[in-house]
Design a protein around this nucleic acid. Sequence first.
DNA 1: CAGTCATATGACTACATGGTCACATTGCAA
DNA 2: TTGCAATGTGACCATGTAGTCATATGACTG
Lengths: 213, 213
Amino acid sequence: MPKQTFLNLPEEKQNWIIDCAVEEFAQNGYAVASISRIVAAAGIAKGSFYQYFEDKEDLYGHVIDYALVKRKIQVSDQVSTKLEELNLTAFIRLLIKSEMREFAQRPKILKISMDYARHRNEPVQMRIAEKYKDLSDNYFQNFIQREKARNKVDQNVDDDILSLMIFGAASKINEYAAKNGYEALTDEYVDSFVDKIEYILTHGIYSNTTQTV
Amino acid sequence: MPKQTFLNLPEEKQNWIIDCAVEEFAQNGYAVASISRIVAAAGIAKGSFYQYFEDKEDLYGHVIDYALVKRKIQVSDQVSTKLEELNLTAFIRLLIKSEMREFAQRPKILKISMDYARHRNEPVQMRIAEKYKDLSDNYFQNFIQREKARNKVDQNVDDDILSLMIFGAASKINEYAAKNGYEALTDEYVDSFVDKIEYILTHGIYSNTTQTV
DNA sequence: CAGTCATATGACTACATGGTCACATTGCAA
DNA sequence: TTGCAATGTGACCATGTAGTCATATGACTG
């Protein structure tokens, strides 16, 4: 947790410092990120920094908290409204689009949270997860469960596996965006992408020889 | 590429040094890995090291090459034999099991190659990929294509997406093994896991209301 | 005005890093 | 034995790091 001194700072200054930290962590990840660079970028003294935060890990925790909260608000805004009327693939479509919109708007924050998720089994990240035991409630699994309860999705489908499959496939979009820039991510591209996922989830992958069209 | 000096070394010594490097890179990834620690572990002088390799990146490249070759040999041994008689899910089953066997035997090498794949868009990794332009031929996509050609797998299925979905799901096994130790990865566990993937790939995810069982 | 208290500072410590280099050691050939 | 080239060596360099601390600033109080 940041020290009181930090919280007493005018909000602008707080944000400015966090923004600099976000920049650094997004670019380098936790291990390589440097406090010296952060304070230089922020234009504050090393000593000041250590009056705001206990240490590097403390700052990182705060940034992660901030990144996750931003993410959550953003995504839930987009998604929670029409939730009732969607089926799973429509939901995926919405989720991916909203993620992509976020990626376009806050690429650094997305990068940090992805990096964080990726290292979630390492000591620093585990300590932070423990500390900020956040409601990492998973829209997606919740949704799947609801659809199963409503008997829309087959009861035999494993929630976990399904969500991993979809996120696995979705990772391709991130890669595409990372390579070609997020402005290349048109709605058409995303749609055609989700169509492909939908096809597999609807028909399975095997040629249906008994009822060939 | 390692310098000639390194290649002149007795094979035992070469292997010992590479083993120490593997240990270090597996534990810390490229950025954090330390040459000082490697030479200390290997019991050679800093100066000697720099007579074997140009620099850290040179060593890393060599290790990656080694790691990928080891992986390839291992997997292809397991997989290439019975290839003809398998269908896709049987193939997945075999592939995952063989990967898991490898994970059990060479966890460090697996870790390095995963880490490398993960950072494949960063400068160091890109330079190395360029240098060792390896036949990163993808068994899996080849197999999918063959199955489509044979009309076993639906032509409308997208190869890329399918393979990402499966690898996404399979990542759960790696996580499981990382947490519980690879000795927990019994054949039964892997089988039940692949069953779940197979179910989705066979039936799709939606309740088939027209022909409910 | 003096006193106090939160905040700001940057030189400093202790340490680690990648990489170099002048020199020592070795094995082999003449 | 001498000479020479290939190897081996570790002190050393420049640089960077996280974190500390004595000191300075400045706002607010009595």
